[in-house]
Amino acid sequence: MSSSKPAWSERELPAFFRRWRTDWKDEDLSPGNYLDFEGGLRFVLAAAWLFCPETVEYRGCVFLKERFSQGTVDDWFTNLGDDRRRIEGVANHVELWDVFGNTALADDDQLGEELPQLALALGECWQGVLSARYPDREITVEVSDEEDGSYGPTVTFWTSPAISTFG
């Protein structure tokens, strides 16, 4: 999977959810029902920071606040010159395997197999949130899943000044 414009159009319900719905003997149950039945509000509230992240602006760039370190970004400017696209792309790079490092990804729930879909959903959210938050910038969100499996599903973004058609 690789996409520069994330699009999560062919959703497949996660295996754990399908089993849960079957256990309840009600195929009409939705993911929203699962959140309500399983006390999901705590998790959804925490997930808001993942799907709608806080950002900071520094040296003409936009960075995820949670991952931002002024010293590290300054080092990237030293190493990459004024290549803001690469600096933002590297600094904002989120590997989902790392986000869920304490979660068993290879158990019966097959959660590791669900991460590519989560990456696409996350990418779409970031695209919308960042575009609304920074209307004067072109936002590029990249979702990828390396073929060799070295990083797993990843999401990153970079910005550039918006190009006006009105000169």
Rank of each mutant, 00 (worst) to 15 (best):
P153H: 02
G149E: 15
V141C: 13
G152M: 05
D148P: 11
E138R: 07
S131Y: 04
F157I: 01
E124T: 01
G128N: 13
C125W: 01
E138K: 06
W126I: 01
E124I: 02
G149C: 08
V129H: 14
V141P: 13
S160Y: 02
E124W: 02
Y151E: 14
R137W: 00
L122Y: 13
T156Q: 15
L130G: 07
L122V: 11
V129P: 12
S160A: 06
V129L: 10
F157G: 10
D136Y: 03
E146A: 08
W126P: 07
V129E: 15
E138W: 02
W126D: 08
W158R: 04
V155I: 14
V143F: 04
Q127W: 08
F157W: 03
D145N: 15
V141F: 12
S131V: 00
T140M: 05
L130W: 01
E138A: 04
E142V: 04
I139V: 09
T156Y: 14
E142F: 07
E124C: 02
E138G: 05
A132K: 09
I139R: 10
R133M: 13
E146Q: 06
S150Q: 15
Q127T: 10
S144I: 04
S131Q: 05
G149Y: 10
W158V: 04
G128T: 12
G152H: 08
V141T: 11
E142K: 06
E142W: 02
E124Q: 06
G149V: 06
E147L: 01
R133I: 06
W158L: 00
E146W: 07
G128C: 11
G149H: 11
L130Q: 08
E138D: 08
G128H: 11
P153M: 04
V143I: 05
V155Y: 09
W158S: 02
G149S: 14
T159Y: 00
T154K: 13
C125K: 00
Y134A: 03
Q127C: 08
S144V: 07
S150F: 13
S144C: 09
V155H: 14
G149F: 08
T156C: 15
R137C: 03
G123Y: 09
V141Q: 15
V129R: 13
V141G: 15
V155K: 14
T156D: 14
T156F: 12
V155F: 14
S144E: 15
V141D: 15
E142Y: 01
R137D: 00
V155P: 14
P135E: 02
L130M: 07
V155W: 13
D148Y: 06
P135T: 00
T154E: 14
Y151W: 12
G123A: 09
S160N: 07
T159P: 00
S150W: 13
L122A: 13
I139D: 13
L130D: 10
Y151G: 13
V143W: 02
R137H: 02
V129M: 11
G123L: 05
P135A: 00
D145M: 07
W126R: 08
D148Q: 09
S150H: 10
V155G: 14
L130C: 09
E138C: 05
P153L: 02
E124A: 04
P153A: 03
